[in-house]
Amino acid sequence: MSELKRTSLFQVHQNHGGKLVDYSGWSLPVQYEGITAEHEAVRTAVGLFDVSHMGEVEVKGSDAEAYLQNLVTNDVSILEDNQVLYTFMCYPHGGIVDDLLVYKYSKEHYLLVINAGNIDKDFSWMKDNKRNYDVELNNISEEISEIAIQGPKAEEVLQKLTNEDLSRIGFFYCKQNIDVAGAKCLISRTGYTGEDGFEIYLNHQDAEKVWKQLMEAGEKEGIKPAGLGARDTLRFEATLPLYGNEISEKITPLEAGLGFFVKLNKENFIGKEALVKQKQEGLKRKIVGFEMVDKGIPRNGYEIVADNGQIIGFVTTGYQSPTLKRTIGLAIVDADYNELDTPINVQVRNRLLKAKVISKRFYQKNYKK
């Protein structure tokens, strides 16, 4: 068995009493004090996450914009310098290679932030589709640490460590070379929780110092370190997809209800033909929200069964929602069953439990626009 990779904050997690688990080959904390306490801290105050396992790829060159326009589903050409874009890379059949963020520094220089478990696959895909574009691709994932500070008090806490006016960084914008506690950082107003907050990219040697200073700066505001468990419950309540659950090689962005990030009017991109066809023919299945009527926790992969006994889909994510105090989930089901209040059943081990389709808008996102 290969040794788990460690982030530059590994010792910090041990010092905080983090319960470390294997996540995509990395040793990362699933929780510290507890998932619910960490979740509530982010919803009401501020939480700190180590997301250094994420991947980063630089795209440079005179054809950088054209290359990315072909590679991803969203429209890179509309970006201003220092703006961030959420998008997908798709296979020719329309399934998803990965979801990612595109940071535009200039028309000839971009940073792509990709999922930890997909780094090697994604980078190979990017290189395989380089064609004749004049671009240079650099996988710099192992050179960068990343800290996410999230919650309604995130700006207040981070502002104590920098002279940069953070209120001037808009939602899905970034700024380079910001001094945070003496460290040079890239800061973006982004995150994966449904709350306002920032993601801080920095050198490994500065990560522990910045983490400790953020924890000290946020003591009065009730800052807590937060693990992968809270990261998942937070993103789920905000209906943010997780690769391998709501989106995958076998689930297209349109089936996932994320067509907003697919610009079918673009000249061309990998997967466009398949997605145009899927839209024209009508979706045969969709991601829906549901709430349990019977008692039980739906888990990823559990079958969804219609009242007539037919298997019509499966659960992608399910939880007892810490914020809503209800047992809810997301599932991909046959399109005939996507109407609100449609009765469905979830196969939980050897029991068939009643549930009903509800809106996917579980939680009102609180971003600073």
Rank of each mutant, 00 (worst) to 15 (best):
R285N: 10
S77Q: 06
K250Q: 12
C174D: 09
N177Y: 01
P253S: 06
N15W: 01
V12M: 07
Y91R: 15
E33H: 10
V102M: 06
I119G: 10
L112Q: 00
K368T: 13
T193I: 03
K295L: 08
L161R: 09
G309N: 11
R326E: 02
T44V: 10
E156S: 04
T193L: 00
I35S: 00
K272P: 01
E146H: 03
F314V: 08
I332V: 13
K365A: 11
R349H: 12
A355Q: 02
L214Y: 06
Q213E: 15
K286A: 11
L161T: 10
A64T: 02
V288P: 10
G282V: 03
G170E: 13
T323Y: 14
T193Q: 08
N345C: 04
H93A: 04
L352K: 11
K369H: 11
F261K: 11
F171N: 12
V357E: 03
V57C: 14
M54N: 10
D98V: 00
K121Q: 08
G229T: 03
P92L: 00
F290R: 07
G197C: 13
I35M: 12
Y192S: 07
W26L: 08
T73W: 03
L242F: 14
S106P: 05
S124G: 08
E65A: 12
V288C: 03
H204G: 06
I147D: 00
K220H: 11
K104E: 04
N129Q: 10
Y192F: 15
V315P: 09
F290L: 09
A183G: 12
Y363K: 13
E80K: 15
A116D: 04
A355L: 07
H16R: 14
H109F: 09
D63W: 06
E80L: 06
A238H: 14
F198R: 09
S188T: 14
N139V: 02
Q364R: 12
G117Y: 02
N70D: 14
F88H: 04
V102Q: 07
D81N: 14
I200A: 12
S188H: 04
Y32D: 05
V12C: 15
A116P: 01
A355S: 06
I187F: 04
L330H: 14
T342E: 09
E58T: 08
K284M: 10
D336W: 00
N15Q: 14
G182D: 06
K368I: 13
E267I: 02
P253Y: 13
H16W: 15
A306P: 10
E164K: 14
L202R: 00
I297E: 13
L275T: 03
N350H: 09
R326P: 04
M126D: 03
Y67S: 08
I147Y: 06
I114T: 12
S52P: 02
L161H: 05
